[in-house]
Design a protein around this nucleic acid. Sequence first.
DNA 1: GATAGGGACTCCAGTCACTGGAAGGTCAAG
DNA 2: CTTGACCTTCCAGTGACTGGAGTCCCTATC
Lengths: 133, 133
Amino acid sequence: MNIGDVAATTGLPAKTIRYYEDIGLVRPARGENGYRDFSQRDAHKLAFLGRARSLGFSIEDCRTLLSLYEDHSRASADVKDLARQHLVRIATKIAELEAMRGTLEDLVTRCHGDDRPDCPILDDLAGDSRPPA
Amino acid sequence: MNIGDVAATTGLPAKTIRYYEDIGLVRPARGENGYRDFSQRDAHKLAFLGRARSLGFSIEDCRTLLSLYEDHSRASADVKDLARQHLVRIATKIAELEAMRGTLEDLVTRCHGDDRPDCPILDDLAGDSRPPA
DNA sequence: GATAGGGACTCCAGTCACTGGAAGGTCAAG
DNA sequence: CTTGACCTTCCAGTGACTGGAGTCCCTATC
């Protein structure tokens, strides 16, 4: 398979697949013309990576997950640990964003949004009329 | 004020303040020794920037917010629009993260997490036993 | 055989918002 | 006069790609 075919089947951009080769996540064979020649196994690994990335795992996590996937004597506890750590990061991120949303929603509600200059949003950013921490 | 003082009062790292000068967000004066000499106004702007950044606004948004802040003939509608667009981005991001969390929580629950190799998390990533989209 | 197109190749630069580190100048205290 | 804290600039790296330039290859059509 050429890179375009793998890109189509995995949904990953060709650029990304080349990048994944660069950083050693896949090692496709090469044809005589210098084109990458992907096996089914390569395509499968790329699909795995795409799915792991879509769940927000970092590239380094993906590297670990891939090696666990290929290690048939792995302990599922190692996978679960990784996933749990990732869940904590996600939950933290969500909490941060929720806090931002809460503040912003309040400010947006309080701003008239007309053609006059007075604006609670700017007041808040400037440090005025903010509830004491 | 030297950069260290402003860093202490605003909570921004000195490195970040220098960076903000680089990209033209602040233009502190310079003393004879070449040191930056921050006015109260500069410090105030930096605090504004720190607050806006902590609400997740991009640097370019911050630039706009700052110019609106300094434009006393602004329309609050412009500020509100910016904030609302930002709210949409935040909500989108939260939704993405919630989706990841949902999937991951399910997978983590289903994984035994012992010393055996079989693992629903890896199965899912590999494309097996995934609910049909 | 010439040509046109669509794909593939490599390599470099840019993204975003910093952050780390090296190499050196300045200032106040002891 | 030295020490140590602070300041300066400049360069490089982060994560995970993405865009673009310039070139090569393959297939099809005329």
